[in-house]
Amino acid sequence: MTYRSNHPSGPNDTDAGIIVTDEFERFSQRNDIFTRAFWDDTVRSKHTDGFFASYRMEAAPRRGDGFTQRDFALRNASWLISDLVSNRDAETGKREGFQAPIANDTPVAAERAAIDDPAKISAEIKRIAAFFGADLCAVTELDERWLYASRVDTRDMSDAPNDLPAGITHVIVLGHQMDEDLVATYPSALAGAATGREYSHEAAIVMQLAAYIRNLGYEAVASMNDTGLVIPYALKAGLGEYARNQMVITPDFGPRLRFSKIFTSLPLSSDAPKKLGVAEFCNVCTKCADACPVKALPYGAPDVSTQTSSVKGVRKWTSDAKKCFGFWAKMSTDCAICMRVCPFNRDFTKWQHKIWLKLALSPLRKVALWLDKHRGARVKPAEWWAKDMK
């Protein structure tokens, strides 16, 4: 499949909150900050090797609450299923789910199921996604701009072709909710278990849902962080709106999600993007930027970034990826303080938070921000361990 390198405009961009300029360039995955940590000396530091080694329990620091051996042990165990998938084809330079799509474990059925109603099959896909464990599911058209210009050969970190099967027309975007109690303990190795658990969940879910679609006789490529940028697809599928903290804010779980995707030829009915009012709220809220310990998050209005690890020619809030990753490396674990302190980090199944959400997405957003002023404090990891696990 051949893609155009530049395509400044696209359907539904305005409703999705995506502002693409004439300087747009598709992103090369080799420039992702985590991939750069393997080849770019300006990103590497004395902490980088220890950061990656800690995920193998080879360099796990023992330095206080949230960073003990059992904290790292739980975090690393939570990654296990994702790691098994990503490492199974490593000798060929393909880290599945991260620097390469997840390889098909089942063939496309020779007999193709007849699809007469795309809306009906879309509803069915959402039902099956929920059956396998996805918390959110929506559909959008394939938009070539958000596919990586190239993927990465992990043997030497060189560019590699980023191809999809012929006939791909749609992207199924799945959301996976992170554990609220663990997120409350960021920054800590313990909190990293919330991240790893969802990567393991989504690996299983996208593989199973993609297999179901292939069993119907249609192409389905299971994908996590690989192949393309998931945030634009999530926005265009109507799952939420982009925020200052670089996350998609959903009306179901706020920012407390991981996303995966499936590229498919199944004839589907697409969901519409929605303007919720998150951007207007972020215009008056800087809690994430204020809380960032290395000041990696932006103040002010969205702008077009020239950073190596940011997609070129898109007007948006952009973090300083080198500062952010540097802090991760120093702690030997991921950081999501910006997720923890986000006013949208709430349980929206509760009536009081539903009322708050209506305020936050209305002209009364400053009232909602005032009501949030005492929320978002860090919970000590020891308190999580002390809870009754029943």
Results as ranks from 00 to 15, higher is better:
A103T: 09
V108A: 03
A109I: 00
A109E: 10
A109V: 00
A110G: 00
R112V: 15
R112W: 01
A113P: 01
A114F: 07
D117L: 09
P118Q: 02
P118M: 10
A119L: 13
A119M: 03
I121Q: 09
I121P: 03
S122L: 08
S122A: 15
S122K: 08
A123Q: 13
A123M: 06
A123E: 14
E124S: 06
I125K: 05
I125H: 02
K126W: 07
K126V: 02
R127M: 06
I128K: 12
F132T: 09
F132N: 07
G133L: 11
A134E: 02
D135L: 05
C137Q: 02
A138M: 03
A138Y: 04
V139W: 08
T140W: 03
T140K: 03
T140Y: 05
E141I: 00
L142H: 08
E144D: 12
Y148C: 03
Y148H: 07
A149P: 06
A149G: 10
V152G: 01
T154N: 08
R155L: 12
D156S: 06
D159N: 13
A160T: 11
P161Q: 06
D163V: 07
L164C: 09
G167H: 11
I168V: 14
I168R: 01
T169F: 05
H170A: 01
H170N: 15
V171T: 09
V171K: 06
V171A: 06
I172L: 12
I172D: 13
V173Q: 00
V173N: 01
H176Y: 07
H176N: 08
Q177G: 10
Q177C: 10
M178H: 10
M178D: 11
M178K: 12
D179K: 08
D181F: 03
D181V: 06
L182C: 04
L182T: 11
V183Y: 05
T185I: 08
T185F: 08
Y186I: 05
P187F: 04
S188I: 11
S188P: 11
A189Y: 11
A191E: 12
G192T: 03
A194Q: 09
T195S: 12
G196I: 04
E198T: 14
E198P: 00
Y199P: 03
S200L: 05
S200H: 11
H201C: 02
A204G: 14
I205Y: 10
I205P: 00
V206S: 08
V206R: 04
M207N: 02
A210F: 13
A211H: 13
Y212K: 14
R214W: 08
L216D: 12
L216R: 15
E219A: 12
V221G: 07
V221C: 02
S223A: 14
S223F: 02
S223K: 06
N225F: 08
N225W: 08
N225Q: 11
D226A: 15
D226V: 02
D226C: 13
T227D: 05
G228T: 06
G228C: 05
